[in-house]
Design a protein around this nucleic acid. Structure first.
Length: 192
DNA sequence: CCGGTGATGCCCT
DNA sequence: GGGCATCACCGGT
């Protein structure tokens, strides 16, 4: 990663990166279709935090979290779901930002095909839901997010006055840490 | 609208 | 064998 590109904020801590990722675009190319979602909800994870997959150190599963910032960490959970993170921090430090929800911008018909039978509102309002809608699975684990078929397009920062900060969802350890961020008033978040 | 619950496979102990 | 950064469905309100 060069020192002056749009991903430079990812080299620092995951908490500030989680806030900064709000409003950025996730762009996916799939079956010749272009899918775009605007990130509206994120959570930060770091090796010092017992809720993080990286907390117990390097293992094959979480190796990507210790690698280059700006790559995708995609994990499989509950026997059926994938979730996607953006790796942050210096190489050698295990940290990442979970993308918890996006607002569909382009390619909505393809997203609907990927998630048959759900309402428009449920298309991408959860970490595993958006992965299903965008066709993201373990094949994209470790993928560098500056190129297709999956890329992060950095957008201007969201006004801090429009960002809410709360505790994270669905974890047991460090449940009081306020490391979740979402765009207030967005109808696309998983939970207000 | 809400809380409870079963599904289901992989990683790590 | 335990636990999981979840989801969809069910039944009661």
């Amino acid at each position: 990663m060069s020192s002056d590109d749009s991903f430079s904020f990812l080299r620092h801590d995951p908490v500030s990166a989680a806030r900064r990722l709000l409003g950025c675009w996730l762009v996916r190319e799939m079956d010749g279709q272009r899918l775009v979602g605007r990130i509206v909800e994120t959570e930060a994870y770091h090796q010092t935090d017992a809720a993080s997959h990286s907390h117990k150190g390097r293992t094959p599963r979480v190796e990507v979290m210790f690698g280059e910032p700006g790559h995708a960490y995609v994990y499989f959970t509950y026997g059926m779901h994938y979730c996607m993170n953006v790796v942050t921090g210096p190489v050698g430090e295990g940290s990442a930002v979970l993308i918890r929800a996006v607002e569909p911008i382009e390619g909505i018909e393809t997203m609907k095909r990927n998630r048959p039978g759900v309402t428009d509102k449920e298309l991408t309002n959860g970490p595993a839901k958006l992965c299903q809608a965008f066709g993201i699975d373990k094949r994209l684990n470790g993928h560098e997010l500056r190129q297709l078929p999956l890329m992060l397009r950095v957008q201007p920062a969201i006004d801090p006055g429009r960002v809410s900060q709360t505790t994270r969802i669905g974890i047991r350890h460090n449940a009081d840490l306020p490391w979740r961020f979402y765009i207030r008033n967005s109808a696309a978040v998983s939970r207000p």
